[in-house]
Design a protein around this nucleic acid. Structure first.
Length: 887
RNA sequence: AGGCGGAUAGCUCAGUUGGCAGAGCGCCAGCCUUACAAGCUGGAUGUCGCAGGUUCAAGCCCUGUUCCGCCUACCA
């Protein structure tokens, strides 16, 4: 009776183990531990979010690293939490209110915020629960939220400090305004998308009636706010007109012609209309030339009183009406098709309106300089390396960061204005009397801070900063950050700036930027396309382990991942394979004597020694791959070892001793299976935590291995150097494998079914013979041979036999009565052709004097050996062919 | 416009110091061989995008080029 049933069914054990692990507190990190620290902070998902494939990938990779390091003797902290997602969350709650026929204004600020907290309490935990399904080994006792009291204190501390240092200021500048979210946005929160538009050519007459200037615009409605037309100072066409005035059509306003080097004389007519209130470039130009600003579009996207007869119209309606009027007035010369990039709100896609508005800004240049330096010096390593360039480029071209948002949900700006004297005070604590005049009646700013402002502090605010906590001193700087490259600017760059400024240390030593997930057609997975796979459905169908392993197996650096269901099916088979390997192991361990002493390696079979040697190499490979963040490589090594070495070869080889009647050989095989299975489950655990734990817990444990750890979560990760490697055994088994493959090849090519027993005859040196003699049983079992015989080098070769060459050995399979010899002739010719092709390549190299003279001696020697081997093999096969023909 | 990435088997992709081009899936053939048919065994399949260059030797390094994708950007 087996301990487990025949099919992998993750639904039966995943939840059980997760509960067990959390109850035991394995994920909790102790800041007072003596172990070296390893720490990761989770990229906080939006509190409104639900788990999507990007989260699944991102958090799987973090969990792999966290579990690996935890097993490898580190005090591992994976800090979890969510961010308050100001705009997104407010949108969600406002939608709910709208369903009740209410607006946030109806409730008032305090009541509205109360409602948001209620919402958060009810729904905010969704993504956290989903992360648990994934198996994430976060320290849930430390779960944080950017609006928590502690984190809010950190935000306030940072704001006030930067203000005191003169790095935060308030002022009227042109900013990106979302007319739907009704708030300012930072530059990088605007998504530019190419779209088909038009170029309207307008004719502005000179004031003195002596002519006109043509200008072109993609946004005709802004002409109502024009306060100048600019030309290039060197432009011969317009040189004489500089300083003259034009009459702005429709508005009949007098506007000057100015000269500015910004204008590209080769584009369009070479003259540009200037609308300082509604275009960032024009705003700059306006400053240079002290132009007035006329705001014709308001915060709701409607035309203002300044727009005259168009006041109150939506900006697009106004465009239509105005264009019609311009055409009638003869001002509109022509309309061209024109493609250009239009900026949209990253939250709601509404077209952004550049507006002049009073906002709060961070002067980022000084912070950015430090952030660049840290990467240049290697204090933080970006993986893959090529993202460095993008990072530098962004940091070096950074403009001041608009941090105020005209919403209610978020950290309210701690600035207080005195009604009496007008003084504005910024304060770490709420104040109600003016520090300057002592009057009461202070008004706090209505605006809140950009969510990214608080996320930027995440690596240290989550650890209790500004208190100098044990967590900060143990776990900051964090060891690693894993995130998608799409938030390199939003988040990574800002954490770098804030971390360096406030902790004088980088927030993380390594940053691993993973690829994007795409569907099978290569399109980005997105909610709007509806082409996303749902990780929870996948977990339901395949198990969390299979989903994790699949994602890891495809996570090659710098390459996007195309996902589809069949990909997961492939690794479901792998999980099932592991399951069945375990069944095999358990079946054959039922009578295992846990008290028996360990059989020394030297007394075990070659197969035993071989697989243990391979295990050592696998452990080394997995470690090296993980240390370099080559996740796909790590997964591949485990896959290959478990399936193609342990299952394909060792399990088959172990059947003889297990089913045979030599008790010592059997015990040796049992002990080997346990050693290998135990270590393999340890190696597998970071990738497939549930399956590995389920199987490992059922594995018998011999007394000589000492007490077993309570759980794989806290078990030791295998060290290659502690697993012995026997080179001789590896060589012997490799020889066995070659012989077996050669015989199988004959069988396969000849289409001999396994039911037809055959004999293998090996002709080899005495030395090889003595090595192989002991492995006879293995060879018979694996090659499905009735017997394996040896002949000495000089002895006549068998007649009517298939011939094969493997290493230095010749292998014969007598075919008389089994198969038509012409089949063998065909097979041999094919084989000879293949080898001859190889040989001519090698001889080509050796025939080149340059190669022989200039290549390293060992490379030349290797080629010579290879040529000799090929020659010998060909000769032998030809001889075999002759023997067949001669019959 | 600039920057970055990709192009390798029918498909999806590996390929870390230049030294015999690989895997999975698919395909063909044979197998229910008592862990596993979600399996086993064997087999076929390549102008490594194109053109040059460096080198004894290039998928890998250099130059140019084509196509695809992404990011950044103030061309009205």
């Amino acid at each position: 009776m087996s301990k487990i049933e025949g099919t992998y069914s993750p639904q039966e054990f995943e939840e059980k183990w997760y509960d067990e692990w959390t109850q035991k507190g394995y994920f909790h990190a102790d800041p007072h531990s003596d172990k070296p620290p390893f720490s990761i902070v989770i990229p906080p998902p939006n509190v409104t979010g639900i788990l999507h494939m990007g989260h699944a990938l991102n958090n799987t990779l973090q969990d792999v690293m966290t579990r690996y390091k935890r097993m490898d003797g580190y005090e591992a902290l994976w800090m979890p939490g969510t961010d308050h997602a100001g705009i997104a969350t407010q949108n969600v709650v406002e939608r709910k209110l709208a369903a009740e026929g209410l607006t946030r204004e109806d409730l008032g600020r305090d009541n509205f915020i109360e409602r948001v907290w209620e919402w958060r309490k009810e729904y905010g935990g969704t993504i956290i629960r989903q992360l648990k399904k994934l198996g994430a080994s976060c320290d849930w006792d430390r779960e944080r939220f950017t609006m928590d009291e502690g984190l809010s204190r950190a935000v306030r501390e940072v704001f006030c400090t930067l203000y005191e240092e003169g790095l935060i200021y308030k002022g009227s500048y042109i900013i990106n305004w979302c007319p739907r979210c009704h708030t300012a946005l930072a530059d990088d929160e605007v998504e530019h998308k190419d779209s088909k538009g038009n170029l309207w050519h307008l004719r502005y007459p000179l004031e003195d009636g002596s002519g006109y200037i043509d200008v072109a615009t993609t946004r005709p409605e802004t002409m109502l706010g024009d306060t100048a037309v600019a030309v290039h100072p060197e432009d011969e066409r317009y040189k004489d007109l500089i300083g003259k005035n034009l009459i702005l059509p429709v508005m009949n306003r007098r506007i000057p012609i100015i000269a500015d080097a910004f204008v590209d004389p080769t584009f369009g007519s070479g003259a540009v209309k200037v609308t300082p209130a509604h275009d960032p470039n024009d705003f700059e130009m306006g400053l240079r030339h002290s132009l007035p600003t006329i705001r014709v579009i308001g915060e709701n996207g409607q035309m203002t009183e300044e727009a005259g007869k168009y006041a109150g119209l939506d900006r697009y309606e106004a465009r239509k009406a105005l264009v019609a009027d311009l055409e009638e007035a003869g001002t509109l010369i022509k309309i061209d098709d024109h493609d250009h990039a239009v900026g949209g709100c990253y939250r709601c896609q509404t077209v952004i309106e550049p507006l002049i508005s009073e906002q709060w800004f961070v002067k980022v240049k000084p912070l950015a300089a430090k952030a660049v330096e840290a990467v240049e010096q290697g204090d933080t390593k970006i993986v893959p390396d090529h993202w460095k360039k993008t990072y530098y480029h962004w940091m070096e071209n950074i403009r001041d960061w608009c941090i105020s948002r005209q919403i209610w949900w978020g950290h309210r700006i701690p600035a207080f204005t005195c009604d009496a004297c007008g003084e504005m005070s910024v304060s770490r604590e709420d104040i109600d009397t003016c520090p300057k005049c002592g009057a009461s009646g202070l008004r706090q700013e209505d605006d809140v801070l950009d969510t990214w402002f608080s996320s930027a502090l995440w690596p240290f605010s989550t650890m209790g900063w500004p208190e100098e906590t044990a967590e900060v001193s143990k776990f900051y700087p964090t060891s690693l950050l894993v995130t998608g490259f799409d938030i390199l600017f939003f988040w990574v760059a800002r954490m770098m700036m804030m971390g360096l400024w406030f902790r004088k240390e980088v927030p993380f030593k390594d940053v691993y930027l993973h690829a994007l997930l795409r569907d099978e057609q290569g399109r980005k997975m997105s909610k709007s396309l509806g082409n996303s796979l749902d990780p929870l459905e996948l977990i339901e169908e395949f198990g969390a382990d299979v989903m994790r392993f699949t994602l890891v197996a495809f996570a090659a650096q710098g390459r996007d991942i195309r996902l589809s269901k069949p990909r997961f099916e492939g690794y479901l088979r792998f999980a099932n394979k592991i399951w069945n390997a375990a069944r095999f192991a358990f079946m054959n361990l039922e009578d295992f004597d846990e008290a028996a002493p360990e059989i020394p390696l030297a007394e075990r079979s070659s197969a035993d020694r071989w697989i243990i040697g391979r295990l050592s190499e696998a452990a080394k490979g997995v470690r090296e791959a993980l240390d370099d963040y080559r996740f796909n490589d790590a997964a591949g090594q485990i896959y290959k070892f478990l399936w193609h070495e342990f299952c394909d070869w060792y399990v088959e080889m172990s059947k003889r001793p297990l089913y045979g009647d030599d008790p010592k050989a059997k015990l040796a095989a049992q002990q080997t299976i346990i050693t290998v299975f135990d270590a393999t489950m340890r190696l597998l655990h970071p990738f497939m935590p549930f399956l590995s734990e389920e199987l490992w817990q059922k594995l018998p444990f011999p007394a000589y291995m000492g007490p077993r750890e309570e759980s794989l979560v806290i078990a030791v990760f295998p060290k290659a150097e502690e697993i012995p490697t026997d080179k001789g055994a590896v060589e012997r088994v490799d020889m066995v494998k070659e012989v077996v493959s050669a015989v199988r090849n004959v069988r396969g090519e000849m289409r001999l079914p396994p039911s037809k027993k055959l004999t293998a005859i090996i002709q080899c040196s005495d030395k090889e013979r003595s090595l192989l003699l002991d492995e006879r049983d293995f060879m018979m079992a694996l090659a499905l041979a009735e017997s394996v015989e040896f002949i000495a080098p000089g002895e006549p070769k068998p007649k009517q036999a298939a011939a094969a060459v493997a290493g230095g050995l010749e292998i014969f399979v007598p075919l008389a009565g089994l198969v038509d010899l012409e089949e063998e002739e065909r097979r041999l010719n094919k084989e000879i052709d293949k080898l001859a092709a190889d040989l001519s390549k090698v001889e080509g190299k050796l025939g080149n004097p340059n190669f022989v003279d200039r290549a390293p001696a060992e490379v030349v020697e290797k080629e010579r050996e290879r040529a000799a081997e090929l020659n010998e093999a060909i000769d032998k096969l030809k001889a075999g062919l002759a023997r067949i023909k001669g019959e």
